[in-house]
Design a protein around this nucleic acid. Sequence first.
DNA 1: CAAATATATGAGGACTCATTCATAATATGA
DNA 2: TCATATTATGAATGAGTCCTCATATATTTG
Lengths: 176, 176
Amino acid sequence: MQYEIKTPRTRNGKATFKLIVDTAIDLFYKKGYFNTTISDITGTAGIAAGTFYLYFPNKLALYKYVLTDFQHDIRKRISEKVATVNGRFEKEKEGIKTFINYVIENPHSYNIIWESLYIDKQLFINYYDGFAKRYERGLKQSIADDEMYDVDTELVSYILMGVTNFIGLKILLDLG
Amino acid sequence: MQYEIKTPRTRNGKATFKLIVDTAIDLFYKKGYFNTTISDITGTAGIAAGTFYLYFPNKLALYKYVLTDFQHDIRKRISEKVATVNGRFEKEKEGIKTFINYVIENPHSYNIIWESLYIDKQLFINYYDGFAKRYERGLKQSIADDEMYDVDTELVSYILMGVTNFIGLKILLDLG
DNA sequence: CAAATATATGAGGACTCATTCATAATATGA
DNA sequence: TCATATTATGAATGAGTCCTCATATATTTG
């Protein structure tokens, strides 16, 4: 199977592409990936069925595109924010705050990222492993800098991710 | 839509019913709910398509049946185990241990419970809210008994659930 | 302006899947 | 033993969806 995405060349094309992506994000959030059909997307977007295939070979390719976008976005936001403060404790606080704020601002993203566990498990693993590794690196640095006890960094990174994620989830559910 | 499940009357019927449920649990785990068709279930179980409808009106009803079963099972296990030890700290340790062990023994359950978020959000909310409420009750009791600081019990219950869940998830992913 | 390229359409073919139903086998109980 | 209830079958039906393709319009470029 090929997952090649064809990027638009003209102003109109770019607008249609964006329309497809934005519509999909909204529908994936509201109805879930599996309950969203390509006809749903094209119908809601008000374009012809064939137009979809001008840019995406299938629904999964579109999903991966959306997911990757969110992942980059969220990681970038966190690392930027965390870099602005000093000390492990402050960094943790800032990281959690940024994540939670991101979830509140983009409830779509959180839902879509988690759903990857049921769409393509490897996508999910890659995402959280990457996240955990970055976390661990930060913790190790802080230990080296004598800013915190010499803990099991893998365990602690998963604990912190767990806490943050679950609170994010709680907020998300309360919102909806 | 009706979700009535017809329970079998005879020995043979009971065996077929169980076969359907067990096959479904396995397939839901391996392929996910949405990628599992009723033909998959009947085919794998080695029964005719029509036989499925003798007991379940559709796939969702079967899923709910499975989910409810796991929920009761896991809650029962935890509350039984936690009751055997004294002191908040010991109770927490026991609760987390029991949950993690349950996940290791029944990786199916964890996956199926989480997937409910994408099948019927309300099922998921009911489950975790119920879980959190029981947790809070325990924490409040421990505070009253002067076994722990006077913390925000809702927050702490979500934090502990987050930690436990994420570690469970990590184990699950490492297993697979 | 003419040729080439990019974008857009939507009906139709191919396919999958859920569900029904006429029929049959098996078990139960009086 | 025979009538009734239960369980089982699987071909047939029909709804829904993906994706293609012949056709058309719009835009760009030389």
